[in-house]
């Protein structure tokens, strides 16, 4: 409907608004240079949003993950095919499998082929996080070929791995320092807790449509 387009633009151009220049008001959300302060705020924010945060280090990661999977009685887990910590994830799984039966869905096929399984037969999905935002206790997910979008969305639990060194102060600073405008991927998702809703009588309930559990494993790497 190009005629609609032209009619809309004709009306907009006709108004000929006086163009306003960039505002001089600076936006300074919460910020800190202290790594301990960043970490504390990050954990506090996520915890307040009902996420569980476990702290570990790279060396102990597979043990932490293993214990988590066993304690939560996750028996069916979806994982990606790559990422910096992929080998630790694989190792943790093999550790679990020594003592516990564990079905693994490796997300290496088209979504159509694993959709039903993801929806119906998976307890948890494991993904990396690109960055953490301390201000609001937020994970930044940057899904790609190796960790598709639905891995963190469809399973009822999401286990998110994040390295402490990636935590930044706030969202605004993050997109500026990483110059996001030059490299937007198909999808970026900011996650700040498990899925929730207050749509019924303002009563907070978790697990609306996304994962009802969010477990964040914070890896000390500094």
């Amino acid at each position: 409907m190009s005629s609609s387009r032209e009619a809309i633009f004709a009306r907009l151009r006709d108004a000929n608004p006086k163009v306003k220049t960039m505002e001089t008001i600076a936006y300074q959300p919460w910020v800190s240079n202290e790594t301990e302060v960043l970490k504390t705020r990050f954990i506090d924010g996520l915890s307040a949003s009902h996420a569980e945060v476990l702290t570990t280090n790279r060396h102990a990661l597979n043990e932490t993950l293993k214990t988590l999977i066993i304690e939560k009685q996750f028996a069916r887990i979806a994982i990606g095919t790559g990422g910096d910590l992929h080998s630790e994830i694989v190792k943790a799984i093999s550790l679990v499998q020594i003592t516990h039966p564990l079905n693994i869905l490796q997300f290496d096929v088209d979504f159509a082929q694993c959709k039903s399984q993801l929806f119906n037969d998976i307890d948890a999905g494991i993904t990396h996080c690109r960055v953490g935002i301390a201000d609001t206790g937020t994970l930044v997910l940057w899904p790609d070929n190796t960790e598709p979008r639905t891995l963190s969305l469809i399973p009822p639990a999401h286990i998110a791995l994040i390295k402490r060194s990636t935590i930044v102060s706030n969202f605004a600073e993050l997109m500026v320092t990483e110059a996001w405008q030059n490299k937007m991927p198909t999808n970026i998702v900011l996650v700040s807790g498990p899925s929730k809703t207050a749509d019924i009588q303002q009563t907070l309930a978790y697990g609306a449509h996304g994962p009802s559990q969010l477990v964040v494993i914070l890896i000390e790497d500094m």
Partner: peptide, 24 residues
């Protein structure tokens, strides 16, 4: 709106599924 410092999800969509991507 709801007095939240941030919502649970902020979803930024820039394209349909690209070459090599498995979902979306």
């Amino acid at each position: 709106a709801t007095g939240q410092a941030i919502t649970t999800y902020f979803n930024m969509i820039t394209s349909p599924r690209r070459e090599g991507e498995l979902d979306g």
